[in-house]
Design a protein around this nucleic acid. Structure first.
Length: 347
DNA sequence: AAATCGTGGTA
DNA sequence: TTACCAAGATT
């Protein structure tokens, strides 16, 4: 039987009921696709429900402040997705009269939308036969056809896109695309794929050649950089603190944090007090104490952040203009949110 | 074009 | 505990 027929037949029996599948409104599909980039359905689901209820239309999203959008995105990671989403929402609302573009070629022009997302939206919402290639597709196709080309190489990306495009069912491209992804997520899983009960077991190259565990091939390992963060948690006598916005390049753009002293290694209390940054922040007398006796290691994909939170007590401070109770209104990284939770409990 | 961008789950 | 990696995009 044809690859697509077998696949779609499997999908009709095994597909997941997900809220965004009840609609073909491109705004909802767009939201779900952006949220699910490099993100599991289980993690993104709650955010999707929150966004669609708070921002039922693209105009509602466009009207919001960026910090509001980032606050709602807090905890989902890859925050450029939220900034680009908001940017494109404003573009659609203001320049496109609120009308979502209706072809792959137009959709991919939007900021934050690449080949995968444009293909997904075009196929699901507008029946355009453009094949999606995500992590699931790389895995299923590399195994089924026994392809050893690295999926993260320039040639691999091309090869798999071309192959996927030849396999798509042009009569139901959206269903086909989602079927391939669901099949990868639920059946042809990274570990312990269900080969025993697989509808492709008579023709899967990886199964025949016992290559399932070796495929897909991905080259290069990422290098993890170590960084040493010291956050200065100020609490003045009148219950105020300082938060700073992260700007420029690097992690957590647009999110807020306590004043940060970054060092080359783990430092002690004396080194903090003697530092130039500390002197600039606190010319007056202050007391300093380490909150976490054990260094917190916050792991990002490319960085390990060895973190200490220093509690600073001082009478008044002219830069401290944020009321402690209002911290919760600011978007913060999970590292900071976790600290705040722990600090509230101890306090 | 290789590096970078988060967080959480799984084995 | 570490390694992998999940509906990728950007620079």
């Amino acid at each position: 039987m044809k690859f697509s027929n077998t696949l779609v037949y499997w999908y009709l029996q095994n597909n997941r009921e997900l809220p965004w599948r009840k609609s073909k409104n491109p705004y909802f599909i767009w939201l779900s696709e952006i949220m699910l980039q490099q993100t599991r359905v289980a993690q993104g689901l709650g955010y999707y429900l929150k966004f669609t209820s708070t921002f039922p239309t693209v105009f509602d999203l466009a009207k919001a402040e960026e910090s509001t959008v980032l606050k709602m995105w807090q905890g989902l990671g890859y925050y450029s997705r939220a900034r680009n989403l908001h940017f494109s929402a404003k573009h659609i609302a203001q320049e496109l009269n609120g009308e979502f573009p209706t072809s792959y070629a137009e959709i991919i022009k939007l900021k934050g939308i690449g080949d995968y997302t444009a293909s997904a939206i075009a196929s699901i919402c507008f029946n355009e036969p453009t094949a999606v290639v995500d992590g699931n597709v790389y895995r299923v196709l590399s195994r089924y056809f026994g392809i050893k080309t690295a999926t993260n190489s320039a040639s691999g990306i091309k090869e798999f896109k071309t192959l996927a495009q030849t396999l798509i069912d042009p009569s139901q491209p959206g269903t086909y695309n989602q079927a391939l992804m669901d099949f990868g997520a639920l059946h042809c899983k990274p570990q312990n794929p269900l080969c025993v009960s697989c509808p492709f077991s008579d023709s899967c190259v990886a199964l025949e050649k016992k290559l399932t565990k070796e495929l897909p091939v991905k080259d290069k390992k990422i290098k993890v950089k170590k960084r040493y963060f010291n956050f200065l948690v100020i609490k003045t006598a009148n219950n105020k603190t300082i938060l700073t916005e992260r700007t420029g390049k690097g992690i957590w753009q647009g999110l807020y944090q306590f004043p940060l002293i970054e060092c080359e290694k783990t430092v002690n209390q004396k080194e903090i007090i003697d530092s130039e940054e500390f002197a600039n922040l606190f010319p007056d007398e202050t007391t300093l104490s380490l909150f976490n006796s054990k260094e917190i290691v916050h792991k990002l994909s490319h960085q390990h952040l060895y973190t200490q939170f220093w509690i600073v007590e001082t009478k008044t401070l002219k830069n401290a203009d944020i009321l402690w109770e209002n911290i919760q209104d600011f978007p913060v990284p999970v590292l900071i949110a976790n600290f705040l939770k722990a600090f509230e409990i101890v306090k």
